[in-house]
């Protein structure tokens, strides 16, 4: 590995940092910090895409790098911060499991997804194929983040982080999806984000809290 080129090394370093950020999100108690971590993840993803674009010289990667940087690193965190401020939910403590157990579960997930990605990586012919395992791990860790939180806000952050993982997976497996799909997904996530934002207010109006456990009761109580 030591004789591989510097840009591949940088890409690998970015991949490992993405994984680290997923863990940081998993262990985070404060929603504001989670959003900051999400913005950092988006930033890293954008930089990795840019690096890959420079390395492979594919024009559509430049566009998706620009999209990633503007949408995931700047716009969405900004929307989330605004939402947090308007809803006044700075604290989203109490993950359902304790942090240490969650992190150990996260480690098992990483081992599982590295094993899972091994056969996929053998079929890919990109230089970055070894990072597929990391992308799968980021997706599954985001799942775990969503599972272990009860509040709507952090579930959305987990959802967005999952999308980051998917994007990174597509990037490392086949140098990105076709442009049309990428745009479609970006738009979908954006719309989902806005709809969820409206939804938050509805949930809070109904239940005076963003705890999603209230949604589990579907009886009409008058």
């Amino acid at each position: 590995m030591s004789n591989s080129s510097i840009d591949l090394q940088l890409l690998n370093a970015f991949a490992s940092l993405l994984l680290l950020l997923s863990f940081a999100m998993l262990s985070q108690r404060r929603i504001v910090t989670m959003v900051k971590l999400l913005a950092m993840q988006g930033m890293l993803l954008g930089l990795a895409t840019l690096l890959l674009a420079v390395r492979t010289g594919q024009n559509h990667l430049y566009i998706s790098a620009a999209l990633t940087l503007s949408l995931k690193a700047l716009f969405m965190p900004w929307v989330l911060h605004r939402l947090i401020k308007r809803l006044g939910v700075y604290w989203d403590s109490e993950p359902l499991l304790n942090i240490t157990v969650t992190m150990l579960a996260g480690l098992l997930i990483v081992i599982f997804s590295f094993g899972l990605a091994q056969p996929i990586a053998e079929f890919a012919n990109t230089a970055t194929r070894s990072a597929i395992g990391i992308a799968v791990a980021v997706v599954l860790l985001a799942f775990l983040t969503m599972i272990t939180r009860g509040k709507a806000m952090s579930q959305v952050v987990g959802f967005l982080s999952m999308e980051n993982g998917l994007f990174f997976g597509a990037m490392s497996a086949s140098y990105g999806m076709p442009m049309i799909i990428e745009l479609g997904v970006a738009l979908d996530v954006l719309v989902a984000m806005l709809v969820l934002g409206v939804f938050f207010f509805q949930i809070r109006e109904q239940f005076d809290s963003l705890d999603l456990h209230h949604l589990e009761k579907l009886r009409e109580e008058k």
Binding site: V110, S130, I134
Partner: peptide, 15 residues
């Protein structure tokens, strides 16, 4: 966790 992540990343990426 960081140490084990380092180990796993080394095994996966060889870096």
């Amino acid at each position: 966790l960081l140490a084990v992540l380092g180990l796993l990343v080394h095994l996966l990426l060889g870096a």
